[in-house]
């Protein structure tokens, strides 16, 4: 239990996917202009990442390893993630129109989110058990959401500030992201 907890804290704070591993930078910059949309994207990522971790782990253990075709890992995982996102989108649209509208366009965007593939691959590399995989996927997406929401809050304030012309727009956003990443370095050493 303690191990699982440490695993989650580690992946949320210490080895944050966005700020330390630099995965999923595209949505991190793309949908962080408003906290509202950042939260929507975060929720969608939490859902997809957790499910994708579990499914890819099963496929790795049940198909790829027994047949000795581990080299097909990347292409298989992308196939799985893409169809999974599509599936989830269709099911949500039917089952819960409210949630579908809340997640909106962010759901299909996750198909190409490299953080999702990153989690799936890391799970296998680290030789996690099934429960650990689920927790790692959940924690990673939690860390992604945390970074995204924090960053969107900063950007909302920057939007009101008098930024020098040369830094306006993406430039100041990237500088802020760097500073945020530096701040997260303070967590290093928290979990071994």
């Amino acid at each position: 239990m303690v191990r699982l907890l440490l695993l989650i804290i580690g992946v949320v704070l210490v080895n944050n996917f966005v700020l330390t591993r630099f995965l999923g930078i595209c949505p991190f910059l793309g949908v962080s202009k408003r906290t509202e949309t950042a939260l929507g994207m975060g929720m969608a990522v939490i859902f997809v990442m957790t499910v994708a971790s579990i499914v890819t782990w099963i496929i790795q253990r049940a198909i790829l390893t027994p047949f000795g075709i581990e080299y097909l890992q990347t292409v298989t995982f992308i196939l799985v993630i893409a169809s999974l996102v599509q599936l989830v989108e269709m099911v949500i649209q039917k089952m819960s129109p409210v949630l579908y509208q809340a997640l909106g366009i962010y759901l299909p965007l996750i198909t190409t989110n490299c953080a999702v593939l990153g989690v799936a691959v890391l799970n296998i590399q680290r030789d996690f058990t099934f429960v650990e995989t689920a927790m790692f996927g959940f924690g990673a997406s939690l860390g992604f959401t945390l970074a995204l929401v924090l960053f969107s809050g900063l950007r909302e304030r920057i939007a009101l500030a008098d930024v020098p012309r040369v830094f306006q727009g993406t430039a100041i956003a990237l500088i802020t992201a760097g500073l945020l990443s530096l701040a997260f370095m303070g967590f290093s050493g928290l979990v071994k």
Binding site: I59, I63, L64, F67, G68, I69, L72, V75, T76, L79, V80, S83, Q86, L87, M90, V91, Q93, K94, M95
Partner: peptide, 28 residues
């Protein structure tokens, strides 16, 4: 051969699943 079968099998499975869900959960 195994690689080809596995990958195309997975692809087939995924597309069948998606096709089924699209029919089953179609929103008019």
């Amino acid at each position: 051969l195994i690689a080809i079968f596995c990958l195309s099998g997975l692809g087939l499975l995924a597309s069948l699943g998606l096709g089924f869900v699209a029919k089953r959960f179609a929103v008019e």
